[in-house]
Amino acid sequence: MNTVGLIIFMVVTGSLIAGFTNMLAIRMLFRPYEAKYIFGIKLPFSPGVIPSRRSEASTKLGKIITGHLLTPDVFINKVKSPETDRFIMNFIDRQIATIEEEKLSIGYFLERLHPGLSEKVISGFNQELENKISEESDRLYTSRIEDLVPRDAMHTIDMKVMQFQPEIIRKLEAYMTSDKGYEDLYIMTDEFIEKRGRVAKSLKYFMTKENIALNIQKELVKLINHPKMFEIMERFIMEEYTKVKGRTVNDFLSEDDKEELVSSISSVLEERIDIRSLLDRPIIEFNKEYFISFKERGKYRLKDNTIDYLAHNMGRIMDKLQLAEVIKKQIDSFELAHIENLVMEVAKKEFQMITLLGFILGAVIGLFQGIVVVLL
C-alpha cells in the first residue's frame, strides 16, 4: 500500500471509529431500557445510563427545579406582578357579573363543589340543631327551677310571690262578701244540714238557713282577716314556693314529655330557619346594599387580601404541594421511549453535531497517525 493510500485508510478508519463510537454512546444513554442477561450473567452497561439512574435523576431534578427554578420567591414575585393583579381582578369581576346576571345562590356553588352537597349541608345543619337542643334539654332536665331563671327575674318573681298573701286575702274577702259567695255558702249550709241527721236539721227551727249562711259568711271574713291567718298563709305560701324553686324540671316532665318537647322545638326551629330556602336564595338578595358596596369597593380589598395571603403563605403552600415529589412522580411515570423522544427532539441538533465532531476528530487523529506511521 502506498503512502497516500495508507494515510487515507487511517483517516477513514479513525473517522468511522470515532463517529460510530459517539453514536453508540448517545444511543447507550437510553438503550437498552432494561437489563440484559446471557446465561444468567448481566451484561455490562445494561440498562442504559438514564434508565439505570432514573430514580436518582428524577429526585435530583425535582430538587433542582424547586430549589433553584420554582422557588417561593419566584412565585411571590409572580403573584405580586401587575399581570397577576389584573388577572385576579378580571376573575373577580367575571364572578360578580355571573352571580348578578344568573342570580346564583349558595346552593349552586355547593353543588358545583360536589353533587348533593346542599342536601348534606341541610341535613347536617338540622341534625346538629337537633343534637344541640337535645344536649341542652338533657342539661335543663335535671336543673333546679331557680337555676333556670335569671337572677333579676328570680328576684322579681320573689317579690311578686310575697305579694300573693294580701292579694289572696283581698280576693277571698271579695268573694265571701259577694252574692256568688253568699249563694255558694247557702248551698253548702243547706247540704250540711240535710245530710247531718236530726240534730243538724233541728237548727233550722231556731235559725233560718239564710241567717246561718250570713253568720258563717261573717265569721269566715273575720277568720281570713285575723293576724294569725295572715302569718299562716304567708308561711304556707313561702314554704310551697321554696319547694317549687328547689325542684328539678324532671319532677314536672316525664322522659316522654321531654322527647316530645325536643322534637317539637326542633321542628319549629327547622321550619322557621328553613336553611333550604336560604341556600336557594340568590346571593344578591341577601343584602343588596352590601352586594353593591362589595361590587364597587369591596372587590379591590378582596383582591389585595388574596394577593397578600398568597404572598405571605407561599412557602407553606409549596411545602404542602411537595412540588419536588410531584415532579419526581411525573418523571418516573413517563415511559422511557417517551423520555428518549423528548430528549432527542430537544437536543437533536446537538447530538448530530457531537456525532459529526466524532467523525471529524477521528479523521484528524487518523491523519496524524498515518503521517506518524509513514515517517517512521
Score class of each variant (00 low, 15 high):
residue 299 K to N: 02
residue 94 R to A: 10
residue 38 I to F: 10
residue 150 P to S: 06
residue 70 L to C: 15
residue 234 E to A: 12
residue 12 V to W: 02
residue 263 S to M: 13
residue 119 E to Y: 06
residue 298 G to M: 03
residue 301 R to C: 03
residue 52 S to T: 11
residue 271 E to F: 02
residue 132 K to W: 05
residue 253 L to N: 01
residue 340 E to V: 08
residue 58 S to W: 04
residue 43 L to W: 05
residue 234 E to V: 08
residue 259 E to W: 00
residue 301 R to H: 09
residue 49 V to R: 03
residue 213 A to M: 09
residue 6 L to P: 03
residue 11 V to Q: 08
residue 358 G to A: 04
residue 66 T to H: 07
residue 252 F to P: 08
residue 211 N to L: 12
residue 267 S to P: 04
residue 67 G to S: 07
residue 83 E to L: 14
residue 347 A to M: 07
residue 353 M to K: 07
residue 226 H to G: 10
residue 157 I to A: 10
residue 176 M to I: 15
residue 9 F to H: 08
residue 191 E to V: 11
residue 140 L to H: 01
residue 269 L to I: 07
residue 84 T to F: 09
residue 314 M to D: 00
residue 13 T to W: 02
residue 38 I to S: 07
residue 104 L to N: 03
residue 39 F to V: 15
residue 99 I to T: 05
residue 26 I to P: 03
residue 111 E to V: 03
residue 288 K to V: 09
residue 57 A to R: 00
residue 99 I to G: 03
residue 252 F to I: 10
residue 34 E to Y: 07
residue 308 D to E: 15
residue 351 F to K: 07
residue 73 D to T: 04
residue 198 R to L: 13
residue 64 I to T: 15
residue 63 K to W: 10
residue 165 Q to L: 06
residue 62 G to Q: 01
residue 370 G to M: 01
residue 104 L to T: 06
residue 272 R to I: 05
residue 46 S to D: 07
residue 18 A to P: 00
residue 126 N to P: 05
residue 366 G to H: 02
residue 31 R to D: 08
residue 4 V to L: 14
residue 165 Q to P: 02
residue 312 H to W: 07
residue 107 G to P: 01
residue 211 N to V: 11
residue 259 E to I: 05
residue 180 K to G: 11
residue 366 G to Q: 00
residue 3 T to S: 15
residue 319 D to A: 11
residue 367 L to G: 08
residue 354 I to C: 01
residue 25 A to R: 05
residue 325 E to C: 03
residue 36 K to N: 06
residue 11 V to E: 04
residue 177 T to W: 03
residue 56 E to V: 10
residue 192 F to Q: 05
